[in-house]
Amino acid sequence: MITVLKQWLQDVLPKLFGSAGNYEVIVFGLLMVVLLHRAHDGLWPLLARLVPVRIDPKVIDPHAEPLPKKPQPPHGEVILEAKAVTRQFGGLVANNNMSLHVEAGEILALIGPNGAGKSTMFNQLSGVDTPTSGEVLFRGKPVAGHSAREIAGLGMSRTFQHVRLLPTMSVLENVAIGAHLRGSKGVLPAAWRLDRTEEARLLREAAIQVERVGLGDYMHTEAGSLALGQQRILEIARALCADPCLLLLDEPAAGLRFKEKQALADLLKRLKSEGMAVLIVEHDMDFVMNLVDRLVVMEFGEKIAEGLPEEVQQNPAVLEAYLGGI
């Protein structure tokens, strides 16, 4: 179109203005500026509106062979263990000598007031950041300092505090990203459609996970049009699609309504009973207390309490941290 436009401008403008000068460059540049002011996304969306093409949803083959699953570790096996993790930013000690562990088939919550260092701890565990000292063991293997990608490959999967989805992709496709490591076909086979069997298996797996978290009705909806709560659930489905044995959830209940919270709690309990280990960083006390098996409480970068929900609720140090003294 631009070639045509330029040719056309070169033809027409000299007739309008006389022959001197290269007006076409000026007009062309002006047109570009105006166009970008009017339509950020270019002309395609405008043209697409003129031709109402039917958008066919992706076909999910229910008979595609299921993807192989890793065997879940037995109940009670220690999945993730942090030993004396310390993280300093210059002089600031964000995490000091933090230790915790998560077992298969349990839900552990990491709680604490704002600025307690929960998110930093979360980053140390998930491979986004590297501890200054201390060890993080995932199923017995040291993972501190390894890339998030390697850690994901070992079977740890996470969600984000600020939802990170691709808003223009469908729910199904967003979830399918989670299964990235469970496929192996590369670029060339994909370009020539030699990957269709694998693709069908990946999509089926994604569809199963979407159904599992209860978003089945929105399978082909654009992810960006979901409510925030649903987007959080979608992130969990995406994490599940990686076939993990440990889920790291960063404030999954934030922005959820009561019913949604209940549904989330049910989902997490079901996962737990299947042998999944879950680590939650959370603010919402009610949600946490009724759901989790154990709690680790942080303040000023340190662990101040650990134990069953009832114990922690009675712990004076915790009460002080949360209520500012008794």
Partner: peptide, 28 residues
């Protein structure tokens, strides 16, 4: 190109726009 975008690798490529941290955490 169309096929590529509609595949596992294609989703990985599209995930680039959703932030590196997310893509890496999904194993891309």
């Amino acid at each position: 190109t169309k096929n590529l975008l509609d595949s596992r690798e294609g989703r990985a490529i599209r995930a680039l726009k959703g932030g590196m941290v997310m893509a890496e955490a999904m194993g891309v």
